[in-house]
């Protein structure tokens, strides 16, 4: 399981200011779950009206900019569940088998 060190957490300190020793391995878990995917969401930009519903219901929050420019889907983590395609009111997202192009 590849883990990426988390640089954003502040160093923990005791109330008197002395630092608390944290194990060097403390890290944010991150698995590249995109490898699970059997089907990939593909957005038809001619049908998409930027309503943002796919972004709202994506369980992983890997869809961004769906209301401003075009829905961007982070395929590093997208598990291919298909909730975005199922919820899209304009049927603008197709689930395409990963083996096909």
């Amino acid at each position: 399981m590849p883990a990426t060190p988390n640089k954003r957490l502040p160093r923990p300190v005791l109330p008197d200011g002395r630092p608390i020793k944290v194990p060097a391995a403390f890290a944010v878990v991150s698995v590249e779950t995109g490898a699970w995917r059997l089907e990939r969401p593909v957005v038809d930009l001619t049908r998409c009206n930027r309503c943002g519903i796919c972004e709202r219901y994506c369980p992983l929050q890997v869809i961004t900019e769906s209301r401003t420019t075009v829905p961007r889907i982070d395929l590093t983590y997208c598990k291919g569940c298909g909730v975005c395609a199922n919820e899209c009111p304009r049927v603008a997202i197709a689930m395409v088998a990963e083996s096909e192009e």
């Binding site: 944010v28 878990v29 991150s30 698995v31 590249e32 779950t33 699970w36 369980p59 992983l60 929050q61 890997v62 982070d74 590093t76 983590y77 598990k79 291919g80 569940c81 298909g82 909730v83």
Partner: peptide
């Protein structure tokens, strides 16, 4: 929450 959690695909 970080991405890349091992919840099942489609977990509500």
């Amino acid at each position: 929450l970080a991405h890349g959690m091992t919840t099942c695909a489609g977990c509500t």
